[in-house]
């Protein structure tokens, strides 16, 4: 069905455009709470993109971990550090023109590189489908060492976070 394929293609481009718009919102809006919500929208858009790439498992993980956990943490921190009806303060420093100039050069350079490189795209790879089983086997087989290292990092981060964020005075413990 070529029409549906065309629709899927343009849908994917539309999702990309929406992600870029929300990403711009993340770095330009003045209200930090709106920035966090834009980030959530951009991350959900990325999950949709993953579904288009046939990586459904990763899409679910993306929503569960990024939107469910990381954005929630960020909003929590915003709520604890911002004033409820505080005046809007200047959010950007004075490096903006310099940053834009440098990044435009960076983007132009890398775009040329991307377009010049002959990418080894193969048709068999495009047809391949990764099942959740295969992912699990790879995670527990080939990549078991990085997996364990990640677990240790998570534990360390957990303990470290508690130690950093808890109040100093011992008698004020929760």
């Amino acid at each position: 069905m070529p029409i549906l394929e065309m629709a899927a293609k343009f849908g994917t481009y539309a999702v990309m455009a929406v992600i870029l718009i929300f990403a711009l919102g993340v770095v330009t809006l003045r209200n930090i709470f709106h920035c966090a919500l834009c980030l959530a929208a951009a991350l959900i858009g990325t999950a949709v993109l993953y579904v288009a790439f046939r990586a459904e498992y990763l899409a679910a993980i993306q929503i569960l971990l990024y939107v469910g956990a990381v954005v929630t943490l960020i909003i929590f921190a915003i709520m604890l550090t911002e004033h409820l009806a505080g005046k809007t303060v200047r959010q950007n420093n004075s490096q903006s023109p310099l940053a834009i100039a440098g990044l435009l050069g960076f983007v132009a350079l890398l775009t040329v590189v991307i377009l010049k490189t002959p990418w080894p795209v193969t048709q068999t790879a495009l047809k391949a489908k990764v099942s959740v089983m295969a992912l699990g086997e790879a995670l527990m087989g080939t990549y078991v060492f990085p997996f364990e290292v990640i677990s240790i990092i998570l534990i360390a981060a957990l303990i470290g976070t508690v130690v950093i964020a808890k109040k100093d005075a011992p008698e004020e413990r929760l």
Binding site: L64, G68, V71, T72, I75
Partner: peptide
């Protein structure tokens, strides 16, 4: 084929609108 994970992931979004409403 990831039905249950989809359910868990989608139900975790519910926190965000509650934050939006409360803030």
């Amino acid at each position: 084929n990831i039905g249950l994970l989809y359910f868990i992931a989608v139900s975790s979004i519910t926190i965000l609108p509650i934050f939006m409403g409360s803030w």
